[in-house]
Amino acid sequence: TSTKKPRTMTTVSAMKDGFANYTDYLNQFNDKRERVVKASRDITINSKKVIFQVHRISKSNREEVLEKAEKDLAAVTSQYISRLVKELQGTDFWRLRRAYSPGVQEYIEAATLYKFCKSGTLLDLAEINATLLPLSDPSLEPLQINVLDYLLGLADLTGELMRLAMGRISEGELEYAENICRFVRDIYRELTLVIPHMDENSEMKKKMDVMLQSVVKIETACFGVHPLIYKISLRRRA
C-alpha cells in the first residue's frame, strides 16, 4: 500500500486540478453566454418596439412614423448590437449562435420591415453588415451577421407584412397591399429554393408553413375586397 498511496494522492490532486480548470473555463464561458443571451433579449425587445412603431403607419403620418422608426433602429444598432459585437470573437461566433440568434433574427425583421416601408425594397444582408463594420474594433475580425439568421429573420418578416397589408386594406390602400402581396410571394418563392441548403432547417421549415399561411391570408384579403372595396376606395379618394 505504501507504493500505492502516493500515486492515488497525486491522481486525486490531478483530478482536482483538472476539474478546477474545467470549472473556471465553464464558468467564464457560461457568463459570456449569459451576457450574450441578455444582449439578444434586449435586441429582441427593442427591435419589436421598432416593428410596433412601423405598424403605426397610416396615410396621414407616414413620414413622421418612419423617421421615428429609423431613429429607434439606429439606437438598437449602436446600443445593443454593439454589445454582441464585443462578445463574439473567433469560434464564439458560431458557438454562441443559439444564444444570440433570436435577437439577431428580430433585428433583421425590424430592419427589413422598416426598409420596405421606406423604399419598397428588400434590405440586403450586405447592407446590414456594412452598417455593423464601424462597431467592431478595427484590429479584430469584424462581426458579420450570417446568412442563416438573415434568412430566418426574413421568414418572420412575412408575418409583419401580413399585418401591414391588413392595415393598408382597411385604409383602402389596395395598391400598397398588392405590392406587399407581390413582395411576399417573391420572398416565399426564393426561400423555397434556399431552404434545402440551410444548416439544420427544421426551424425554417416551420416558419415556411406559417409563411405560406400569411401569403394566403394576404391573397384572401385582396380577394375579399376585390373589386367591391376598390370602388369604395376610389370613391373616397374622389
Binding site: 391588413m166 372595396i229 369604395i232
Partner: peptide, 13 residues
C-alpha cells in the same frame, strides 16, 4: 376586429 371591419365595408358599399 377584422370580421367587424368586413361587415362594415359590406354595409357601406
Amino acid at each position: 376586429l377584422r370580421k367587424v371591419e368586413e361587415v362594415y365595408y359590406d354595409v357601406k358599399i
